[in-house]
Amino acid sequence: MIFQRGQRIVFIGDSITDCGRRDIAAPYGDGYMNLVRSFVTARYPELGLTWVNRGIGGDTVRNLAARWEQDVIAEQPDWLSVKIGINDVWRAFDGRIDEAVPIDEYETTLRDLLRRTVDATGCRLILAEPYVIEPDRAEPQRAETVRYGQVVRRLAEEFEAINVRTQDAFDEVLKTTEVKDWAPDRIHPELPGHAVIAQAFLRALGWEL
């Protein structure tokens, strides 16, 4: 296990991370973050890890930048997991073009946030790629999401971070299933879809499932 005794692990992102953590499912949400927390805690209870969820539904990387000091730096994480990018892309396809984040801005902003955090806290990083649950690789939103995922992949190499390839995880299950088996809107998974994401996280952490 890459986590060490007493470490603090902070997750930040959009609604997929939030998942009710601010209200009905406080404080961890009822999605992939809580599944990862639960499985790691069950197997390694002696580590006494602290888990923090700072996801907020609807966020883009711009929103993260506005709250980064309070929700990340002030938390002094030993590990920081960032999963952002779905809304940055989606806004260009759902009629809110002014809220979409161009890919160059996305990369520059995310890199700056990661650099600030590593410099301020010395934490290790876990970077999860954005996804859309769509088997047609030529579909415009799917194709654009992959481009943003490639940004995350490059940043993971740059920062020697753990890279969670969530799009690949959904592509694998879609070989034998349909989109509706995982999410009603290609974006917000029901619990089995969150389990797909959680498994991708655990595998990236070196867990043999």
Rank of each mutant, 00 (worst) to 15 (best):
M1H: 07
M1C: 01
F3D: 09
Q4D: 11
R5P: 05
G6F: 12
G6C: 11
F11T: 05
D14T: 02
D14V: 01
S15M: 02
I16Y: 07
T17F: 04
D18F: 02
C19T: 09
R21K: 15
R21I: 06
R22Q: 13
D23V: 10
A26M: 04
G29L: 07
D30Y: 02
N34C: 07
N34Q: 11
L35H: 07
V36F: 06
A42V: 06
R43F: 06
R43D: 11
P45Y: 06
E46Q: 13
L47E: 03
L47D: 01
G48C: 12
L49M: 15
L49N: 08
W51R: 10
T60V: 03
V61H: 03
V61C: 07
R67E: 04
W68I: 05
E69A: 09
E69R: 11
Q70S: 10
D71K: 09
V72A: 08
I73H: 12
A74P: 12
A74C: 14
P77I: 12
P77R: 11
D78H: 14
V82F: 03
I84C: 05
G85Y: 07
D88T: 03
V89A: 04
D94T: 00
D94R: 00
D98Q: 03
E99H: 03
A100E: 02
V101A: 03
I103Q: 07
E107A: 06
E107C: 00
T108W: 00
T109D: 00
L110F: 14
R111T: 15
L113A: 07
R115Y: 09
V118D: 00
D119H: 15
G122F: 14
C123Y: 06
R124I: 06
A128W: 00
E129N: 09
Y131R: 04
V132L: 07
V132H: 05
I133F: 05
P135Y: 08
R137N: 14
A138C: 11
P140V: 10
Q141I: 13
A143K: 14
R147M: 01
Q150H: 13
Q150D: 13
V151W: 00
R153C: 03
A156R: 01
F159H: 06
E160S: 13
A161Q: 05
I162Q: 02
T166E: 07
F170I: 00
F170M: 07
E172H: 08
E172T: 09
L174Q: 09
T176N: 14
T177C: 11
E178Q: 15
V179W: 05
K180G: 05
P184N: 01
D185T: 07
P192Q: 09
G193Q: 03
I197V: 11
Q199V: 11
Q199N: 10
L202D: 08
A204R: 05
L205M: 11
W207P: 01
W207Q: 01
E208N: 11
E208A: 10
L209I: 12
